Amino acid sequence: MQESLHAEDTFSLGASPKLAFVASDSEKAELALDELSTTYDAVPPEEADVIVALGGDGFMLETLHRYMTLDTPIYGMNRGSVGFLLNQFNPTGLLDRLSSAQHIVLHPLETKVTTLDGQEHSALAINEVSVHREVRQAAKVSVHVDGVLRMEELVCDGVILATPAGSTAYNLSAHGPIVPLGAKLLALTPISAFRPRRWRGALLPDRAIVRLKVLEADKRPVSAAADFTEIRGVSEVTIREASDLRLRLLFDPEHNLEERIIREQFLP
């Protein structure tokens, strides 16, 4: 990463920051939206100094994607279940919480996908890019890193390339490593690798360009997913960090993302 993942001590806001509130369609989120909108003056997201997202982790990802080009910090409050990317919900003292919040900068992954019919697609991922077999037969993939063939044939259910922020999600469930923020690494993790049987993946520099070429694609079709964008009938996937795009998240000091990622490594 040219501008690495990091947490700053504080995030400076003006005396009267303009706030925008967005919510998922769950009942809890809608009720929170009504309460906050009557307590604080609200503006459209395009005019805001901070966007407050109300929902779960899925909605937080949607919000980050939707407003990615605004370069506006986003402060999430959990109205879902896990809430890994969000702060606790409390309608009072919001301005004080924002003034003392820690500022995390993330960079998404940029994905270029070529399908069997020659079409090219682009997508961005905050958590991970993954490829998966579409049929009962295992996928066969060759792995290239920075133009070098690193694995001639990987037989597996799929492959994940995860950011540090996404390393505790799908990557962790596939037995991949948790990557701390600021490590300047990406996690390349196989899903149910059959050959080579003992390969558990690799940690790569965040500047690495990863290319996955699908072998026997007609017989063993593969799909690619970048967060919640899915493309089927894939022949090749190229992934790199989009260092020119930054996502700015705000966290309460006691709930900052860096601490959560470290804490995940010590859970039973």
Rank of each mutant, 00 (worst) to 15 (best):
I74V: 08
V129N: 07
L85G: 00
L267Q: 15
V237N: 02
V234N: 00
Y67C: 01
A15V: 14
A224C: 13
D218M: 04
F84V: 06
G76M: 01
A123M: 03
Q265R: 11
T114C: 10
Q88A: 13
S167T: 08
H121Q: 13
A23R: 04
A101S: 11
S142E: 05
E46A: 12
V159M: 14
H132T: 09
I178C: 06
H175S: 14
Q102M: 08
F11W: 04
I262H: 11
H121D: 04
P190S: 04
H103M: 04
S223A: 12
A15S: 15
R66K: 10
K140Y: 09
S81N: 12
F228E: 11
K112P: 03
L64T: 01
V222D: 00
N256D: 10
S173D: 14
S24H: 11
R97M: 14
A242H: 08
A7E: 11
E30S: 15
A15Q: 15
P190M: 04
I126K: 01
E30W: 13
Q2R: 13
R240V: 11
R200F: 04
A202W: 02
E152M: 05
I209F: 13
L85I: 09
D41R: 14
A139H: 02
P91I: 13
S122P: 04
N87G: 09
P91G: 10
P253W: 02
A193H: 00
I74A: 02
S81A: 10
S99M: 11
V52T: 06
Q88I: 08
H6T: 13
T168F: 03
A165C: 05
K184C: 15
L95Y: 09
V131A: 01
A32S: 14
G176T: 00
R195K: 06
D9T: 11
S81V: 11
D146V: 11
L161W: 07
V22T: 01
L70T: 02
A7N: 11
H144D: 08
R232I: 10
D146L: 12
H255M: 14
K112V: 12
S4G: 14
P164G: 09
R195G: 09
I209W: 15
R133L: 01
G55M: 01
E27L: 14
E8I: 07
I126D: 02
L257I: 03
P177W: 05
H144Y: 12
I178D: 00
A20N: 03
D34Q: 15
E110S: 13
L149P: 06
V179L: 14
P205M: 15
E254W: 08
R263W: 12
Q137T: 12
S223G: 11
L33W: 15
T229A: 05
P164T: 03
E27Q: 15
L247V: 04
S223H: 07
E8H: 12
L85H: 00
R200S: 09
L13T: 06
P108G: 07
L94I: 15
V237W: 03
E35K: 14
R66N: 02
L64F: 02
Q119V: 08
M1W: 08
E8G: 09
T92R: 15
D206T: 14
M151V: 08
V234C: 01
R66F: 02
V135H: 13
V50Y: 01
V210G: 07
T168P: 05
R207F: 15
L249M: 10
